[in-house]
Design a protein around this nucleic acid. Structure first.
Lengths: 213, 213
DNA sequence: TTATTTTTGGTGTCATCGCTCCAAAAATCC
DNA sequence: GGATTTTTGGAGCGATGACACCAAAAATAA
């Protein structure tokens, strides 16, 4: 009944201690879990699928990651850290103006959503929209992540307005909401098998809604 | 092992026969199931949730609907029949031009996605994107429905090009893919709690990408 | 080497899931 | 009213899901 509290990451994460060192690479195992969650979602991924893909036993899993839900949170953070690399690099590139940043964002999105070395689309856009009651924590977490990326877009547009490369008359939050919606739609299109070219052209069309300066 | 084949709808569906008539209204039960599936998705909705919401017993469920998967298909058809009402009425309204039809489509979408009498967003847009292996039939079914609505949009645009109210130089399929993506994005935004006004403004912004005649 | 610390495999457990069977009950037809 | 046909409630089943526990194994510190 009393839930076991995992205070800190153990396994490969702790510094070289006394006992037997873990035989598996925690980062590699986490990455494998991330891809599975990305592909199938939280509820679509079973405990057995996870430990099998991660190449560890049930007890190692429990020792190192605490629970399926804790692992999902960690995998999500890992995904965000990874996708945030290209996302924020482009969004906040100081050498380009706001509109160009968004255009490049969608070019990169078309590429990233259709790569062969990881699942199609976006782990965040597709997750936690359709879920059982009792999964509200998961749903809320993903909604927050979506809201975060939308607000990052809004901040970039506001900066553009301050810098003078975006008209001061536009509603920055609404423009960000629009491009956020387009990104979510691209994730669904990618999942349904849309080609890189198709995604790129959708993004290009979306850019033609950019308000005139 | 030999799967029980449900040849036709029984229960309230069959014409007044000999035996004891069903005590529940099949259409009402189906609608309750539809709303549950719409809210939670296929995997997020349990058998017990269903029979409880439908107000019937497990055996009545099995007698009348065959299986959870068969019910899901039927609920999906029911949803499409219902949402197709407003969708195609606007898309194929002969009294308005193509661009106006799409603008009205998004106005209606903003309203329909945020009504209090049924779940938020769209049952089709959100379903079957993140699912377990073995659910490929469900995933494929939903992807087909999405492709169908996209092709209906493309057909409307092609008709517009033929009628002369859309430029003949545009790529009709690509424009449809773009508006399809926007619709998917609106469904996610609606799920995340976006207001009707926010959705309407996103749709309005999306319309400003309409190619010049 | 010995003691200590930690991981590991295997097994067990409890709940849920989706389904299935069965006999009683109820309504119609003759 | 009796026979027939169908629905209904309830009990139960095999599979899966997500852990949880434990004793053996392995590696380091002393």
């Amino acid at each position: 009944m009393t839930p076991k509290i995992i205070t800190g990451k153990k396994g490969q994460g702790s510094k070289r201690g006394r006992g037997r060192p873990a035989v598996f690479d925690r980062a590699v195992a986490l990455q494998a879990a991330m891809k599975l969650f990305w592909e199938r979602g939280y509820e679509g991924t079973s405990f057995d699928d996870l430990i099998s893909a991660m190449g560890i036993s049930a007890s190692s899993f429990y020792n190192s990651f605490g629970s399926k839900e804790a692992l999902y949170c960690e995998a999500t953070r890992s995904y965000l850290e990874w996708s945030g690399q290209w996302f924020f690099a482009i969004l906040n590139d100081p050498s380009i103006d706001t509109k160009t940043a968004f255009a490049r964002l969608f070019e990169a999105t078309a590429e990233e959503f259709t790569r062969g070395d990881h699942p199609l689309g976006c782990m965040i856009s597709l997750a936690g929209t359709h879920c059982a009651p009792g999964m509200s924590n998961i749903r809320d977490m993903m909604a927050e992540h979506r809201a975060f990326s939308e607000s990052a877009m809004a901040a970039r547009i506001r900066k553009g307005a301050a810098d003078g490369d975006v008209s001061k008359n536009i509603d920055c939050d609404m423009l960000a909401a629009y491009y956020s919606a387009v990104a979510r739609g691209l994730a669904v299109q990618a999942r349904d098998g849309a080609s890189r070219e198709k995604l790129a052209q959708i993004g290009h069309l979306a850019m033609s809604a950019w308000p005139a300066g």
